[in-house]
Amino acid sequence: MTIKTFDAFSRLSFIDINRITNFLFENSGPFKDPKSGIRKSILYAAKEISGLGGYVFIIEDKNEILGAAVVNKTGMNEYLSENILVNIAVKEKSRRKGIAKRLIKHTITYCKGDIAIHINKDNPAILLFKKEGFKIKNIEMRLER
């Protein structure tokens, strides 16, 4: 199992974009984003929509996605992290086998600059991110309309 990396130069087909979108939506547990938001983050990373781009990382075994992560570049390094890890998920049957850890380590190695993640305060994955060096820095407050 190797990690495949996609960006604006190693293009994703629209079939792969749909496949990764569905994978992330189906395997993100109770803290998932809407499918349209997941797709948009992938399109942004692949520079299929206007923006700075980013990266999509997937781990497959025999053409079956076991884990995936999407990172978007922010272009805001003077006051926010240069990168945001927007989505990450591991197939339920493959959890607790080091796949999320490999994806996080690959993200840290591959991305230049700081990396942020917005994570629900009740998500148990916080412990994994802390083990990989992420620190709780800010509290997000949101006015939802």
Results as ranks from 00 to 15, higher is better:
136 I>K: 14
108 I>F: 01
138 N>H: 10
97 K>V: 00
103 L>N: 01
140 E>V: 13
102 R>F: 03
115 I>V: 11
139 I>L: 15
100 A>R: 00
102 R>H: 08
123 N>I: 02
112 K>N: 14
97 K>R: 14
97 K>W: 03
131 K>E: 15
103 L>E: 03
109 T>I: 12
119 I>T: 05
120 N>Q: 12
135 K>T: 11
94 S>E: 15
130 K>V: 13
97 K>N: 13
133 G>A: 02
114 D>G: 15
113 G>K: 00
111 C>E: 04
98 G>T: 01
114 D>W: 09
108 I>D: 09
124 P>V: 04
106 H>D: 08
107 T>R: 04
117 I>E: 05
119 I>E: 07
121 K>T: 12
107 T>K: 06
119 I>S: 05
126 I>P: 01
120 N>M: 06
139 I>Q: 14
97 K>L: 12
123 N>W: 00
109 T>Q: 15
94 S>W: 08
109 T>F: 13
116 A>W: 07
135 K>M: 10
124 P>L: 01
95 R>V: 06
135 K>W: 01
137 K>P: 01
118 H>A: 10
135 K>A: 12
129 F>H: 08
136 I>N: 14
125 A>R: 04
124 P>C: 05
116 A>L: 09
126 I>R: 13
125 A>L: 06
137 K>E: 15
138 N>E: 14
131 K>Y: 04
114 D>I: 05
115 I>L: 09
139 I>F: 14
124 P>G: 02
134 F>G: 11
113 G>C: 02
140 E>K: 12
135 K>Q: 14
99 I>V: 13
94 S>H: 10
123 N>D: 10
112 K>G: 09
98 G>C: 06
129 F>R: 03
133 G>W: 00
111 C>G: 08
127 L>M: 12
106 H>K: 13
118 H>W: 08
132 E>T: 02
119 I>M: 06
103 L>R: 02
101 K>H: 08
140 E>S: 12
102 R>L: 07
117 I>R: 04
110 Y>F: 11
110 Y>D: 11
120 N>A: 13
100 A>F: 00
122 D>C: 05
105 K>I: 04
98 G>D: 01
136 I>A: 14
97 K>G: 08
117 I>A: 07
101 K>E: 14
120 N>T: 03
140 E>Y: 08
101 K>A: 10
112 K>A: 10
111 C>D: 07
101 K>N: 10
118 H>Q: 11
107 T>S: 11
132 E>D: 05
139 I>A: 13
96 R>C: 03
128 L>P: 07
132 E>Q: 13
95 R>F: 06
134 F>E: 06
108 I>W: 04
99 I>G: 06
117 I>G: 02
113 G>A: 04
136 I>Y: 09
106 H>S: 13
129 F>V: 06
102 R>C: 07
94 S>F: 08
132 E>P: 03
102 R>M: 07
